[in-house]
Each structure stands twice: as C-alpha cells, then as structure tokens.
Design a protein around this nucleic acid. Sequence first.
RNA 1: GGUGAGGUGGCCGAGAGGCUGAAGGCGCUCCCCUGCUAAGGGAGUAUAGAGUUUAUAGCUCUAUCGAGGGUUCGAAUCCCUCCCUCACCGCCA
Length: 430
Amino acid sequence: MLDAKHFRDGIEETAIQLARRGFTLDTDTLKALEAQRKELQVRTESLQSERNARSKEIGKAIGRGEDATPLKAEVGALGDQLDTAKAELQKVQAQLQEIILGVPNLPADDVPEGEDEEHNVEVTRVGEPPVFSFEPKDHVAIGEALQNGLDFETARKITGARFVVMKGAVARLHRALTQFMLDLHTEQHGYLETYVPVIVNHASLQGTGQLPKFGEDLFHVDGESQDKVAMSLIPTAEVPLTNFVRDEIVDEAELPIKLTAHSACFRSEAGSHGRDTRGLIRQHQFDKVELVQLVKPEDSMAALEELTGHAEQVLQKLGLPYRKVLLCTGDMGFSAKKTYDLEVWLPAQNTYREISSCSNMGDFQARRMQARLRRKGVKKPELMHTLNGSGLAVGRTLVAILENYQQEDGSVVVPEALRPYMAGAERITA
RNA sequence: GGUGAGGUGGCCGAGAGGCUGAAGGCGCUCCCCUGCUAAGGGAGUAUAGAGUUUAUAGCUCUAUCGAGGGUUCGAAUCCCUCCCUCACCGCCA
C-alpha cells in the first residue's frame, strides 16, 4: 500500500510512476472519491464533535436536576445527521480503500523499464553449464528411472495433477537440501531459524499483499460458518514470517531482524494450465526455505544485495550454474520495489529457470501491516522496510541437481556440500 | 467438543452508563537533591486518522478499553454475535 499522499497532491506523478510498471491508475475516480472523502470526513468529525459536547451538557443538566427532554430531542436529531454522514463516509472510504489496496508498489529508480521478462537485465552469470558426452535427460526421466525416485502416478492417484511423491534416495536428497540450506543461513548468514504455521488468516495475507487482489492464487480453508474467519494455505513462508511484526513497534536497536523458515507452500496455479505441466517445476505444493529481513528504511537496498547474496551462496556451494537477473518494472511482483531473480541452469531445457526471487518491498507491506520502528529520541514511530527471498525453492533445486549432476548410467552424483546430509553417499544409483 | 473465568495503555491493575484517553502502581525519559551506589522530590510518557500548515513542527478535531453489531442524547461500562486467552473434563499426534 502506498502512502495516502500519493493519491492526493502528487497523484499525477504517482500515475506516471505506476505506468512504468504497466499499471494504469484511475486518477479521475480517485480524485472524485478523494474530494468526497475530505468533505464527508470533515463534516462527520465536526458533527461528532458537536454531539459529544452537547451530550456532555445533557449529563450536566441532569446532574443539576433540570429537565433535559428538549435538549435530548435536539441532540437526537443531530445524531441522525451524524449517522447519515458516517454511513456515506464509510462507503466512500471503503471504495477508496479497495482501489488503494489494489495499487502495486512503485518501482525503485534503478529498475529497468519493460513490459515483461524480455526486458529483464542479466547482472551476473556464475558457473559453467556442464558439458555432457551424452544426451542429458530431464529430471522426470531421471527421477522415474530410479527404482525409488519421483512418482507422479501415485501422487495423481492420491491427490491429483501437479503433486508428487518422492521416495528413497530422492526423498532423502530433498530433505538433505532443506537441512543444508537452513544450516547455511542460520550458521553463516545470521538468520533465526523458525517454524511457522502454513495456514494463515486473511489479515496476514492482506499485510503481505496477497489479498485482496490475488485470492484466486491461493488454496482456501473456509470456516464452517459464515462468521468464522476464513484462512488460507500460505503460498510462501514470506507471509507468516513478515507478519511477525504486524501491528508491532520495535526498537531500532532490534533491527535488522533476519528470519528463515522451511515450509511447504501451496499455490493454486490458476491461469497456468498447460504451463510446465511436466515434472516438479510448477506444483501445487512445494517446499521452500525462505529468507526474510525486517530493516531500517535506509538499510533496505543494501539488505537486498546481502539477502540475494545469501541465496546465491546456496547455488554456489551446490555447484549449480546460475545467473542473476534484475527484473524489469513489468515483471516484478505486486508488492516489490526492486527484485532480483536467480535462475539456475537446467540442461534438459537448455535454459536458465527461476529458482529464487529476492525483493525489497520498501515500506509497502509495512504500511499494510502497521509494522514500525522507534528511533532513539524520536517520538513518532516510523514504518520499517521488509524484504524476502527464496533461499531456495527446494523442489526446483532438486530438479537442478538431478539434471546437472546426472551421469550416463542414470545415476546422479551428490554435490559434496550435501554428502554430510546423505550419510556420506557420493551418488544416487538406479 | 463440554463447563467455568477472563480479554483495559510498554507491563500490572482500577473503573460497572456522563466529570475516563482512561485512577493507582511498575517500567522508561528529563530535571532537582544526595560527595559513588541506594533512597527521595518534581515533570513527562499510547496509536491511527483528518483539518490547518512550507513542515514528519505546532495547534484544533475525530477514533480506539479483543472484533463487529445493537440499546441510549451519551457506552470501557448494558444487550447480541464472533474471535482469542486461561483452567478443568473429553478426545487426540
């Protein structure tokens, strides 16, 4: 959510900035609503003020033993006016709120302009794609060839499309990856390990920006009655982790707060029928190790570089070739101010595929969440900045390992960094 | 799931229709006093929003005592619904 100021005096400038990321701000509607809001709010508050004062007088009159009946009637009429004004104000504010909650973040100045991923800018490329003396297979072929490996058939039977069952050494490799990532981030990068709910309430989802606009991307767990608060499965642990500080004011000395968690993530993938239907790339359920940083505003851009570097470390230690891409305005997520994607090399696809997305959200989420910090000697609290990134998507990392470390005989070499987590095993064999 | 008790400011805790944005205490900040320390005295100490404004300064106003609705001229206080916490019982990984 942007500062309300952006929709008042500087609205034209805001519209220009939003146009950079392909969002059209309806300035006419906003201006009209804003004018109504101002008028109604001023009127409502002054009516309120008057009624409060008059009601107190009634109390005093009664205290003096006077007859307050005529006064009561008068103030009662005032109350009716107030109710009308209040209702109108509420309507206008709800309309404004709905629009404002649907406006994406403003891109940072150094974000390249562009409509889609075509205009993303490659920043660095690390590692060499492996050269094979044979035709490399994709992870599905590799995983299914193993006696106990990837089993999409069983998953389809017990649940449906876009789910997987992993078995044996592949399941263990998957577990090893999460262990390795968590250890790296907690022991070397200074994150606090956490375990969090994968079902969250809607206040949390609004806080990080998934709601109200992107509800169809989520799986919902509805309450059995209308009054029950509905909840949803998290699409990323960013939601629970970032919401740690919702409605909190933290002392500046406590920042930065660096959190990591391993969790299952759930995405309905509405609208991606037919995309990446084969394999583990796009699943309804997948595991991810998430990195979240809550920082002082002036530190957030540096923190983005740092956090991205932490995710890169995972790829480097696993010996996976990747590139780092700066997303253009049109390809960024709703809440992001600046985003780097890390893309890992997938031999079978002969291309780099997203395995991590690291974003600085600025104060966008913090404003929705009322997540603030208090500086020493300053009375008024200030919005903090929030960042998050995958460190990494575990399923996709598994894909990358199977494909990049595959051998002609169908076995897969275990990267050295993972061997301690695999009882020393050097390779997975058929 | 059942029964009971509760949800008030950073914390503890009063208040039971008007004079309560909220007593008192603790904590914290500043000042005074005290040759260190301890003790003592004084002042201050929520958040959000609106208007005014060059201003994130001041001033004025509004809202907030778990959430939402209702009664009333007026609700922290009364009524309803929901959420949450605690205790005991049942069930359970």
